[in-house]
Amino acid sequence: MELITILSTIILIATISTFILSIGAYILYKVRSRREQRQILSPVVNTQAELVTVKEADEWEELRRKSGRPSLSRVQGEGVLNEREKPEPKPVIKVEKVKTEKSMSPRFVKYNPQEIENAVGELKWK
């Protein structure tokens, strides 16, 4: 019976300490995060997005030119993308530059407009 009393006291003290520790740690976390938030507030940088990839095949380049699309390999994806984006109409992101190993070839043309609205700065593929 005495053992139960001793154990109960230990558990009780440990539980109360955990309660206090948890609330204290939470308050400390909030204070710190508020301080960090103040430090993070820095001027917005208007940066572009870029795609870095390897060139795939020359015949795709040929087909791309014929179809007038940025890349044959992206035609399917682009179709799906357009369909998806119907409910929320958005501006098309310009493909400016695609860095490739051998040559420059634009591969990606679209981006989610909702994200552009929310993203920091203007988003473009270059």
Partner: peptide, 25 residues
């Protein structure tokens, strides 16, 4: 295995994932 990279302005995890998903065919 082909590795590609999309460098974009910080817009949060969801925008990063969406960029990758949309690029993938």
């Amino acid at each position: 295995i082909k590795i590609s990279l999309i460098n974009k302005v910080n817009g949060g995890k969801s925008t990063a994932l969406n960029a990758g998903i949309k690029y993938s065919d």
